[in-house]
Design a protein around this nucleic acid. Sequence first.
DNA 1: CAGAATCCAAAATGATACTG
DNA 2: CAGTATCATTTTGGATTCTG
Lengths: 122, 122
Amino acid sequence: MRKQDSTNARNEASILRNCGMAYALNVIGGRWKPTILFSLLEGKMRYNELRKTIPGVSERMLVAQLRELEEHGLVRRNVFPEVPPRVEYELTELGHSTEPMLQCMSDWGNMHRKKEQVIAVQ
Amino acid sequence: MRKQDSTNARNEASILRNCGMAYALNVIGGRWKPTILFSLLEGKMRYNELRKTIPGVSERMLVAQLRELEEHGLVRRNVFPEVPPRVEYELTELGHSTEPMLQCMSDWGNMHRKKEQVIAVQ
DNA sequence: CAGAATCCAAAATGATACTG
DNA sequence: CAGTATCATTTTGGATTCTG
């Protein structure tokens, strides 16, 4: 087996290996989604309540990301027909299945950031 | 304790809870970094070899992301003084510490994508 | 080979004002 | 309250050419 062959085989293996990652990034990637999901792990929340847990997010972005999460089946949106309106967001079962992944990310961040720093998104 | 108080307390707790996440997103967030790191978990690689394991990445982006990962101390860049040049990238100890997090992401992706789909980045 | 430099297009994000 | 709509800005990405 020549060197070239083993290199190509390794590349193909890596590409395949990266599939799951690519899918995950597609669904929960981006600047806001992990934080949104992580907040919702605490339980259902109304729109403005959720927004307050995520410093720096704009209304536009929060709504857009919530819609994408809903499309991908991670988040359920409950609209109550009241005045003033009330909308609650909560994780679906699929949404809850991201917990280990999100917890890993959060743990890693807490482990490696300087203890004193309080990091806000961005 | 009024409702408002408990809501505020919950928000502050969530904001703090999100710090680690925010830090993690800052360091390994973005479209390419998780895939780059995940590929490098396989071992050190030369620039073009690494590029082949990540379909869709441009030279410009790959270099830029590698530089940022280097700045954050996750990746080491070894330049060999040869002609033609050889540059090898490998994870530092800090880089390796992302393995559980990356593995979680990849596992989640593999678990939930349709088994037949082969997902390329983007 | 491993990039740097340049130019441009497209997408993501932000700020603000407005509305059912 | 929970968004929309609009516009401005930033970031990201791609294509191409060039170089030690």
